[in-house]
């Protein structure tokens, strides 16, 4: 599903060059739920940006869903982001001037879907996150947890091949965080590949695979075994 080989990323200013990723090798299979952890400055966000085609990289090769995106131009990257990747951001990144319907509609419009198809997808996605009744509400009229669920609905409506979640519970209290994590697990169980960047070891433990980054490289990679499976 996602394969990175020798990915290097440098940030340069006039005086200094900072290495964010130092030759990262990584493979994620279809249907996996991967948590990427690591201390600040370890390269988590850079990894997420490159994986989500939000940033380019300086060296290496990146295959996404079998397609080499290493040398793709800006427009082609936009199209892949739109069709194959769903994003869930820590700050939700909903558009405050648009109601839930229009917020979920944003990526669908860029795909050029028909109005009826979009409507069906929007209603279905909002139904799935339990917010169908608030379709004409503004984000400011919702709680943080509800806003993140809208963001998840926005990501789901496009039926992406995989979801990239950047600290999805970072701005939520523990109860709401649990609800969001439950939802992400449910989505994963339905077949969507999820890559989640998090600081929280407790949340990371709910993913099927943990990747720990340090200084731009993988320090550790573990398969998390479900306690229920262990007990059985």
């Amino acid at each position: 599903m996602l394969e990175m080989r020798g990915i290097k990323k440098f940030y340069r200013t006039e005086q200094i060059q900072t290495r964010a990723l130092a030759g990262l090798d990584l493979s994620i299979d279809e249907g996996e739920f991967v948590a990427v952890t690591g201390p600040s400055g370890s390269g988590k966000t850079t990894f997420l940006n490159i994986a989500g085609l939000l940033e380019t990289f300086d060296e290496g090769r990146y295959l996404l869903d079998g397609e080499d995106i290493t040398h793709l131009g800006d427009n082609a990257r936009s199209v892949i982001r739109n069709r194959k990747i769903g994003f869930i951001f820590q700050s939700f990144n909903l558009i405050p001037d648009l109601d839930l319907f229009d917020n979920v509609d944003v990526p669908l419009r860029y795909r050029g879907l028909s109005a009826s198809d979009r409507r069906q997808r929007i209603e279905s996605a909002l139904e799935r996150v339990g917010l169908a009744s608030r379709i004409r509400h503004l984000p400011s009229q919702l709680s943080g947890g509800q806003q993140q669920r809208v963001a998840i609905a926005r990501a789901l409506a496009g039926e992406p091949r995989f979801l990239l979640a950047d600290e999805p519970t970072g701005n939520l209290d523990s109860k709401m965080a649990e609800q969001v994590m439950d939802l992400l697990q449910e989505i994963n169980q339905a077949g969507t590949t999820i890559v989640m960047v998090t600081h929280d070891p407790g949340l990371a433990a709910r993913a099927g695979k943990n990747i720990r980054l340090l200084d731009g490289l993988i320090e550790d990679q573990q398969i998390v075994i479900d306690k229920a499976v262990l007990a059985s």
Binding site: L54, D74, S78, V79, N82, F87, F89, I95
Partner: peptide
């Protein structure tokens, strides 16, 4: 965000 969600320039 719009760019991340697939908007071209």
């Amino acid at each position: 965000t719009r760019r991340a969600l697939g908007a071209t320039r």
